[in-house]
Amino acid sequence: MTSYLEFEKPIAELEARIAELRAAAEGDDVDISSELQRLELKSADLLASTYSSLTPWQKTRVARHPARPHFRDYVEYAFDEFIPLGGDRYYGDDEAIMGGLASLDGRRVVLIGHEKGHDTESRLKHNFGMGKPEGYRKAIRLMELAGRFGLPVVTLVDTSGAFPGVEAEERGQAEAIARSTEACLALPVPMVATIVGEGGSGGAVALASAERVLMLEHSVYSVISPEGCASILWRTAEKAADAAEAMKVTAQHLQQLGVIDRIVPEPVGGAHRDPGATAEALAAAIGEELDALSDLAPAELRRLREERFLRIGEG
């Protein structure tokens, strides 16, 4: 069953009406196909128009949609093979950040990303995609491995932020994030990062300090969650919609600001309506970016990456 967001209520009503009619039509002789067709067209139009003019806050809701495809879905639909590797060799294995060897349309890469989980059990297992220090240290380990064996690094970023907890602080959450960012910048191989859902602050940038940064059409990327920003600057989390607007969190805004390079279109109605098609578009886009970088020497790749971050916000 589709789960609808608040602003999708009119769409939900139409789709429910269509489903009802369909059920009624079965075993009935009355021809209602023209009525069905009319409603379906209307519903498709409504979906398209709603999704072509989402507000930053609505996009935030879509980016967090419970049915939105996550890391595991992309592994299944977009990659030919995935060999998970685990553990940071110091403390443990963080399931919020997954990684391993993967094949993207025949290209061998190291794939790293956040996994949020899709039901209560898996969400708990993956800690809702909130990485701990051992997760970021695993990412560092895998990036170093990629560098040594000349495998490009592909990351899929999807986190509300790094985990805020006592043990995470004790084990050096800040240091782990800082070193992971450093590891990205040091890579002698191509790196392509994509924000596929939420790009939440330092926990995201630690896996996204790449020379090519992509975003799915309805994903968001920000320094703090709209709720967090609102509760600090507006003194109430209820102003989250205003904060999302003011912080310019959408892929479209961030491309204008020169923070990201490319927007990968989602199916009408969002990635969750067709995970397969979303993954296909994502795989194609990442593939193109990797191919464009494949001939560059390590020093040139690092220079591109450094220039990108030194220049951001200028001019």
């Binding site: 310019k248 923070v259 030194l310």
Partner: peptide, 13 residues
């Protein structure tokens, strides 16, 4: 906004 976040990799360069 995001431009403040981008100071993290920038300083790390």
């Amino acid at each position: 906004g995001i431009l403040s976040l981008m100071q993290m990799p920038k300083a790390t360069v």
